[in-house]
């Protein structure tokens, strides 16, 4: 960017056309979403009740009873552990994988563009249905993947029916569906990076890995954070894939938050406990996202200020 342009950017006055305008612009969105607050507070209310649909006589306020019950239940902590493992594994692997693919497709040419759109296909397959198909493909009797594994000398791989490999299987499905999402975000980021620093580095003969770690990666951080944030929110709330695959089994090895809460409501009709589980999930999500967003703001200030 030329010096003149830079100066202009810094000196552009914030438009002050009526202090009300921005509020008016954001009001409709806010109003629509405010409606969500009502069921949210109702859910908070439920979480403080002992409320089981099959025991209508026993409904009563027990304030934090559900929460205490959950926090002292070793099974609940198992749920926390499984959810975190799932989230870290999927988000971590998808970030690395997505970044790698984005780097491969970095150059603007026809082939790369076509491939990047083609790679979106897994994302367009609804995760619930994708699970169904992966279930068939990993079926030990007819599944093409089981057959392939047997060919390379690994017969009898149990995929989702063995507690040791179940997590691997659902993480694999998640990676298959969602890596393209990260890839496309990071690709956009890569393509929009300014060329100048890279040209300078090339002219100066800076080695490639130095360029990557000291120039590319830091500039890419806002994108990485955004991608990680959205994936994190989805992963820790994962329902479709795991429910469709094993409903939380085998044993309790895949019982993540939303699957557990769903089963508690629809199968056990335990509204109070289900609501409490979801509130805890919400609190965790809120805290983590807060962290990410603060980071994002900091980075934005830095890049916009330093330009």
């Amino acid at each position: 960017m030329s010096d003149l342009a830079q100066a202009k950017l810094l000196s552009v006055p914030r438009m002050r056309r009526g202090a009300l305008l921005p509020y008016l612009l954001t009001l409709p969105a806010l109003l629509v979403c405010i409606g969500i607050l009502v069921p949210f507070f109702v859910a908070v209310g439920y979480s403080m009740q002992r409320y089981n649909l099959a025991f209508p006589m026993g409904r009563s306020f027990i304030w934090f009873g559900n929460y205490i019950g959950l926090l002292t239940d070793p099974e609940f902590w198992r749920t926390v552990e499984v959810s975190l493992v799932y989230t870290v594994a999927t988000v971590g692997i998808e970030l690395l994988f997505g970044l790698g693919i984005a780097l491969l497709l970095r150059d603007r040419n026809h082939l790369n563009n076509m491939i990047s759109v083609a790679l979106l296909l897994p994302l367009m397959t609804a995760p619930a249905i994708a699970s169904l198909m992966w279930k068939l493909m990993t079926n030990p009797n007819f599944g093409v993947f089981s057959w392939a594994l047997a060919q390379i000398g690994w017969p009898g791989f149990r995929w989702a029916s063995d507690p040791h490999t179940a997590m691997l299987t659902v993480v694999l499905v998640d990676i298959w569906v969602y890596t393209p999402f990260i890839m496309i975000l990071l690709l956009a980021g890569l393509r929009s990076l300014p060329q100048a620093p890279f040209e300078v580095a090339r002219l100066d003969g800076v080695p490639a890995h130095f360029v990557f770690f000291r120039i590319t990666l830091p500039m890419l951080f806002p994108y990485i954070i955004t991608a990680a944030l959205f994936r994190l929110l989805d992963s820790i709330q994962q329902f479709d894939i795991i429910y469709a695959m094993t409903q939380g089994g085998p044993g309790n090895s895949l019982l993540v938050f939303q699957v557990g809460a769903y089963l508690d409501f629809f199968q056990n009709t335990n509204v109070g406990r289900s609501a409490a589980e979801l509130m805890i999930l919400w609190a965790i999500t809120y805290a983590l996202s807060n962290l990410f967003v603060k980071q994002w703001y900091k980075l934005r200030e830095k890049t916009h200020g330093a330009a």
Binding site: A54, G249, G251, N268
Partner: peptide, 22 residues
């Protein structure tokens, strides 16, 4: 009894753990 699904789902989960030698 009204906790039928609670009990039998946990029962199935236990059976899975037994079969897997957990």
């Amino acid at each position: 009894q009204p906790l039928f699904f609670n009990a039998t789902t946990d029962w199935a989960a236990a059976l899975q753990q037994m079969v897997a030698n957990q």
